[in-house]
């Protein structure tokens, strides 16, 4: 199957996904279950990585500013901008693509190879709507909160690194993170997050839903889905940046 066929099949899948749920109570339960699986269970990894990457960005910036004419508050400013513009929305989404993407593909793929999806279809359940729509809703609504948490912890990590290493003054860092605050940049990061969340929920679902074969193929599909999700996020990031910031 060539790429164009895959793209066509992906959009046809979305056509089935975006139909009214057959039972709203069941759908609501599924959304809460997915928020737990895709969102709450990712809080730990996002918090951990954001904190340390924020620290590393602050240290690297401090180490590379040796010119006394450059104000030290630039460390806080650069850390804040890097985290808000790219690290939190893009880097965290790539991490989530790895963690959540493989989970989505393997869980839906296992259902496919063990005939659970056939069982849903035979019962008269729209399996794509039942399995994929709650994942999309959970990701699109919960990931912005996760990314905001990543932003706070990244900036906090930079502050902690400065305090612990004595490489810059706390006052300079705090001045830097307050300097030239633009709320649009937060909005820009959240727009990117919502689009990346949609990609993270749907591309792995596509790979899992249409898997053929056994457990080996499910494993291969999981790897492939993570690769494609990351590729699509990186390409989307480029176009979104060009559209929203230039």
């Amino acid at each position: 199957m060539n790429y164009i066929e895959h793209v066509g099949k992906y959009f046809m899948m979305l056509g089935q996904v975006f139909k009214a749920p057959q039972k709203y109570r069941v759908f609501q339960d599924a959304v809460f279950r997915e928020i737990e699986q895709l969102g709450i269970k990712s809080v730990g990894i996002i918090s951990f990585i954001s904190f340390f990457i924020g620290g590393v960005i602050a240290l690297q910036t401090a180490l590379n500013i040796s010119d006394p004419l450059i104000p030290k508050m630039l460390i806080g400013f650069a850390t804040k901008r890097s985290i808000i513009l790219e690290f939190a929305p893009t880097f965290c989404s790539i991490i989530l693509a790895g963690k959540v993407g493989s989970y989505i593909t393997s869980s839906i793929g296992s259902m496919r190879v063990t005939e659970q999806i056939d069982a849903l279809e035979i019962m008269g359940v729209n399996s794509l709507n039942y399995l994929v729509l709650p994942k999309i809703i959970a990701a699109v609504f919960f990931y912005p909160f996760l990314i905001i948490l990543g932003m706070f912890l990244g900036i906090f990590g930079g502050w902690a690194a400065g305090i612990l290493s004595n490489m810059f003054y706390e006052a300079d860092y705090l001045e830097g993170i307050q300097f030239d605050f633009q709320s649009f940049l937060i909005f820009y990061a959240l727009i990117k997050t919502v689009i990346f969340a949609f990609i993270i929920a749907t591309v792995p679902s596509y790979h899992g839903y249409y898997v053929k074969g056994g457990s080996l193929e499910v494993g291969k599909a999981s790897t492939q889905s993570v690769v494609w999700t990351i590729v699509i996020i990186v390409i989307a990031n480029y176009f979104l940046t060009q559209m929203l910031l230039t």
Partner: peptide, 26 residues
């Protein structure tokens, strides 16, 4: 009703929820 070769029970649901599933949906 359909009984599949490998049973095709939903792994994430217990026996009660599996059997109740069609009632919950329809």
């Amino acid at each position: 009703g359909m009984v599949f070769q490998g049973s095709a029970l939903f792994d994430s649901l217990n026996v009660e929820e599996n059997v109740m599933f069609p009632l919950t949906m329809f």
